[in-house]
């Protein structure tokens, strides 16, 4: 898939996200739209995976620690063929394979259940340690939010990953600068973010999280870097792609109504 095709694909994934949220009448568009470019590049260009064999032992692992943006993950998984895209219309409904937050026993392709923030990086550390102990080559990717970095457990996990030099682990911070209460900088600053990860013995790459080439290159750099885990700090825009959602914390956890959806789809179709 070339850059142009991937860009178009990501617009289609954005449409898929907004449609499923509008149908569900609840969920988290802002972070889903900031994270989608990264998750899409990961599944299209980086991850070693097979949608027909979600439990393939040699697959790379992706953990969505900021579990509330699972619609972005679901859109990609459906598009990749992990399950029938028809299921996207059942998001958050009783009996659906698509729960409001990630559930490993409901959704093919979801590695671990979660949604209580701050827990994913520890799980990723455990997986990477497990691979190291068994001499397996799979890589582990864990996406966190910048607001999520306020959780203390993230830093417990970061300390352990640095200590064990887990170069099979790649963290991604979807740095969209916002959380429910407003700007992260105002609610509880996580800066200086680069220095924090360096201090915890991580290799740090900073990119524009909507520049598809930069995202891809960052993942390749992370794979090549030995002796330390890598964290990609991806500067993103909350609500990216929909003008009235961009940089507006009100869209953290509110689904668009039919009018808003129509307006958003018009923008994304351009």
């Amino acid at each position: 898939m070339n850059a142009e095709q991937l860009m178009q694909k990501n617009q289609a994934l954005r449409i898929s996200i907004l449609k499923m949220l509008a149908t569900a009448k609840s969920g988290h568009p802002g972070g889903s739209l900031s994270a989608i470019d990264i998750i899409s590049v990961l599944y299209h260009q980086v991850l070693k995976h097979d949608p027909k064999k979600p439990q393939w032992p040699e697959r790379d692992r992706f953990i969505l620690s900021k579990g509330h943006v699972c619609p972005a993950h679901y859109a990609v998984l459906a598009d990749q063929g992990y399950f029938d895209p028809v299921a996207l219309d059942t998001l958050r409904q009783y009996g659906s394979i698509l729960q409001g937050h990630p559930s490993m026993h409901h959704t093919p392709g979801v590695e671990v259940s979660g949604g209580s923030l701050g827990q994913g990086l520890s799980i990723a550390v455990g997986m990477a340690l497990g691979a190291k102990i068994s001499h397996e080559a799979f890589r582990v990717y864990c996406m966190m939010g910048d607001g999520e970095l306020q959780e203390g457990q993230i830093w417990e996990a970061a300390m352990a990953a640095g200590y064990y030099k887990l170069d099979g682990l790649c963290g991604i911070v979807d740095f969209n600068r916002m959380q429910i209460d407003g700007f992260t900088e105002d609610v509880m600053s996580v800066n200086p973010i680069r220095d924090k990860w360096i201090a915890f013995n991580w290799h740090v790459i900073e990119i524009d999280g909507h520049d598809l080439t930069a995202i891809e290159n960052a993942f390749y750099q992370a794979s090549a870097y030995k002796g330390k885990p890598t964290v990609i700090i991806a500067k993103t825009i909350k609500g990216k792609g929909v003008s009235f959602m961009e940089n507006n914390a009100a869209w953290h956890g509110t689904a668009p109504n039919s009018e808003e959806l129509a307006k958003a789809l018009t923008e994304l179709a351009c």
Partner: peptide, 20 residues
């Protein structure tokens, strides 16, 4: 893993998911 109970449980979870 040192004095970090929350991370201890999460890492254990990850280890179990990698077959341990």
């Amino acid at each position: 893993l040192g004095i970090a109970e929350q991370n201890q449980v999460g890492v254990a979870a990850g280890l179990s998911l990698s077959g341990h």
